[in-house]
Amino acid sequence: MGKLQDFLMEAQIGTTQTEVQIAPFPYPFIVKSITEAENKAIRKTCQKIEFDKKTRQKRIDTDTDLYNARLVVACCVEPNLKDAALQEKYGVRGAEDLINLILNPGQYTDLLLAVQEINGFTDDVNDLRDEAKN
Rank of each mutant, 00 (worst) to 15 (best):
M1T: 05
M1E: 14
G2F: 08
K3C: 09
L4W: 13
L4G: 03
L4M: 04
Q5R: 11
D6V: 03
L8V: 09
L8N: 07
Q12L: 04
I13F: 08
I13C: 01
T15I: 06
T15M: 10
E19S: 13
I22G: 04
A23H: 13
P24T: 05
P24V: 02
F25Q: 05
P26I: 04
P26T: 04
Y27F: 10
Y27S: 01
P28R: 01
P28V: 01
P28C: 00
I30G: 00
V31L: 06
K32E: 12
S33L: 02
S33T: 09
I34A: 00
I34Y: 05
I34L: 05
I34F: 03
T35R: 07
E36V: 07
E38T: 01
E38G: 00
K40Y: 12
R43S: 04
T45E: 15
T45I: 08
C46H: 06
C46N: 08
K48I: 14
K48S: 11
E50M: 09
D52I: 10
K53H: 12
K53M: 14
K54V: 06
K54C: 00
K54W: 05
R56G: 07
Q57R: 14
Q57M: 11
K58S: 06
D63A: 03
T64H: 11
D65L: 10
D65N: 15
D65R: 11
L66T: 06
Y67E: 13
Y67F: 15
Y67K: 02
N68W: 02
R70N: 14
R70H: 14
L71I: 01
V72H: 02
V72G: 02
A74Y: 07
A74L: 05
C76H: 03
V77M: 03
V77Y: 11
V77S: 02
E78Y: 14
E78M: 15
K82R: 15
D83P: 13
A84G: 06
A84N: 11
Q87R: 13
Q87F: 11
E88V: 04
K89F: 14
K89H: 14
K89S: 08
Y90L: 14
V92K: 07
R93V: 10
G94H: 12
E96I: 15
E96K: 05
D97T: 08
D97E: 15
D97H: 13
D97W: 03
I99E: 07
L101D: 09
I102H: 14
I102R: 06
I102C: 10
I102L: 10
L103G: 03
N104S: 06
N104I: 13
P105C: 00
G106H: 11
Q107C: 03
Q107K: 00
Q107T: 06
Y108R: 13
L111C: 05
L111N: 02
L112P: 08
L112F: 12
L113H: 00
L113I: 00
V115D: 08
Q116F: 04
Q116M: 03
Q116K: 02
E117Q: 12
N119Y: 09
G120N: 02
F121N: 00
F121Q: 00
F121A: 00
F121D: 00
F121R: 02
F121V: 00
T122P: 07
T122H: 03
T122G: 10
D123H: 10
D123K: 15
N126Q: 11
N126A: 08
L128H: 03
R129W: 11
D130M: 15
D130I: 13
N134S: 04
N134W: 02
